[in-house]
Design a protein around this nucleic acid. Structure first.
Lengths: 340, 340
DNA sequence: CTGTTAGCGCCTTCAT
DNA sequence: ATGAAGGCGCTAACAG
């Protein structure tokens, strides 16, 4: 397998082409001031040896950067975040940069470790979906000239570029729609209120209720579901409540999917009829939402575009000479869409 | 934002701690032969300056590696591959390695570019879901001592470790189940036959048919759908065929989801009744399959485990001193599971 | 147009 | 137990 374990260096290419290392270097970086026929010979040597410039060696030289962007995401397996990652990758690739991807599993300590590692690898910048509320590691990154862009969630007290969704507005519109459909008893399934999006979406939910003279009944509010299975369990509890809701607002796709799974299971078991189940609104669109057995609307947005926007903010700082520009906070609009 | 654009080096830490750079280096790599109180001072200086070892500089020294694994995937946004990536990330993180992620969009040229870039960044190894059948770039990587593990798909003529699924067996069992359910007219929706999985799954499909004396009707076979939308279109064509199938075998989640979307749309439009639609078997499980309006079974497997297994093969070669061990080809079993 | 020198940040080797 | 020298691969800066 490794007939030739060592990778060739400029020096070997130079020897083979009968020139000095500098001529190889010059040829590889555009060929300014190198005779065409010499360039030709160099390129042949490069091809024959299968030479690739050592980017790590290049990056330690003054003025050069690694061309790496560190991306810390809470859960790559969630389609929302993987689509986000796609957007980042695409936009980064446009400038020849690569992404260093790390999964935090919603664990703040792991995120801090990751960021430290990223800094050690001399990333040009960081794109983070923060797992917690602590910002020391990110402020530290900034203080060393490595800009940080927050995505989806902001952190109080950290002055960093950010791209988030119109969480409050979306939740407000979704909840209002349910009220307009005649519902007065609306349940809530969401992620923890301690999470940026959790807090904002819940706030939008509550605001819509109170604007219509409705109050929140804690019996039909569940805010600690991080996974689909947890969401299923929480849904079961809502449905079994003394006064079950006639509609449920789900603060993200995990919770909406869990709700649909539970409803569908109970429907198949025949324990209740379809019309006995609550109508659903989901913050986040998701695949196959249209198969829902109950009426459903989604608060739609484009995670890929969110990834792109976050990356553009970062690149603008890096390449646009705006390292010290004022912090920019973007809030992407969302739209309510009836699915079924 | 960048009060201190330059990142500290060993030298600065050394000065601050009142020692030589070597003492800092030694302290950071375990502290062998450094007096405890000196270590203490060094660590304080490290903390005060927020120093991180420059991994790129370390990696150019003989004997050192980058600790990076290059991962080239055809489509990160596909939940199947993002879950795969999660498995890779987790397993790599266990050895302190990071992943460099690139999306190929099923484009062989882009894959070759990516691999070249990865080699330039001195990755320790490569995990690739190959987009095509050309192997020159991968063989090249191997020849420079950078091992390659293929995931999900193999490439003919390339001797590389690989982890794939039991495509033929799975397709055969899924199709056989449909036949046992009484179907004799079974359609096929899949990705291109030129793709490893496409070919193998189609082969299993055909084998099951012929074992039961059935023949393939090209009118109800569509094998070029790469996206959900394409799959929807293909499904419509199957349903509109002169003799539509009573069951459809879908070779991956994109095709199954497209089929369900089309069926569901027609059902809602009222143009056909539920019992008029074909039963479905899907190679790949996917979220909310249980909401299918028609009976459905899935050929189930665990993409996360596939990612882990691929990474273990790679790490075993890298850390297990098995750089030149014989090629290992793993085929993970799949299971047929009735969903609805 | 081409080559030589020197140094990026780090750590192995060899003193002390 | 600590430090000095040297070199990993690369390329600005300075000859020529």
């Amino acid at each position: 397998m490794s007939e030739r374990a060592r990778r060739p260096t400029v020096k070997e290419v130079a020897t083979r082409a009968g020139v000095s290392p500098m001529t190889v270097s010059r040829t590889l970086s555009g060929g300014l001031n190198v005779k065409p026929d010499v360039q030709q010979r160099v390129m042949e040597a490069v091809a024959e040896l299968g030479y690739h410039r050592n980017e790590n060696a290049r990056s330690i030289r003054p003025g050069h950067s690694s061309g790496l962007i560190g991306v810390a995401i809470t859960n790559i397996a969630n389609p929302y975040y993987s689509t986000f990652a796609l957007g980042v990758e695409e936009e980064a690739a446009l400038t020849g940069r690569r992404i260093l991807l790390g999964n935090t599993s919603e664990d703040a300590a792991r995120e801090a470790d990751l960021v430290g590692d990223f800094l050690g690898r001399r990333v040009d910048g960081l794109i983070v979906v923060p797992a917690g509320t602590s910002s020391a590691h990110l402020a530290h990154s900034q203080s060393q000239g490595v800009p940080v862009v927050l995505a989806s969630r902001r952190i109080e007290g950290l002055a960093a570029d950010s791209v988030v969704l119109a969480d409050d507005d979306g939740a407000h519109r979704g909840t209002s729609a349910l009220i307009e459909h005649g519902h007065t008893r609306i349940g809530y399934l969401g992620n923890a209120l301690s999470i940026f999006t959790g807090e904002r979406r819940y706030a939008g939910f509550v605001r819509a209720l109170s604007e219509h003279g409705l109050t929140v009944d804690p019996d039909i509010v569940a805010t600690n579901q991080q996974t689909v299975d947890q969401a299923r369990d929480a849904t079961r509890a809502l449905l079994d409540a003394a006064h079950p809701p006639t509609a449920i607002f789900c603060a993200n796709n995990r919770n909406a999917i869990g709700a649909l799974k539970e409803i569908s299971a109970q429907l198949n078991a025949g324990s209740r009829r379809a019309t006995d189940f609550p109508e659903i609104v989901s913050f986040d669109d998701f695949e196959l939402a249209e198969l829902s057995p109950v009426p459903i609307s989604v608060i739609d947005h484009d995670p890929r575009e969110l990834g792109r926007a976050a990356t553009r903010l970062l690149l603008d700082r890096l390449d646009g000479g705006k390292l010290d520009a004022a912090t920019r906070e973007i809030e992407l609009p969302v739209s309510l869409r009836g699915v079924r």
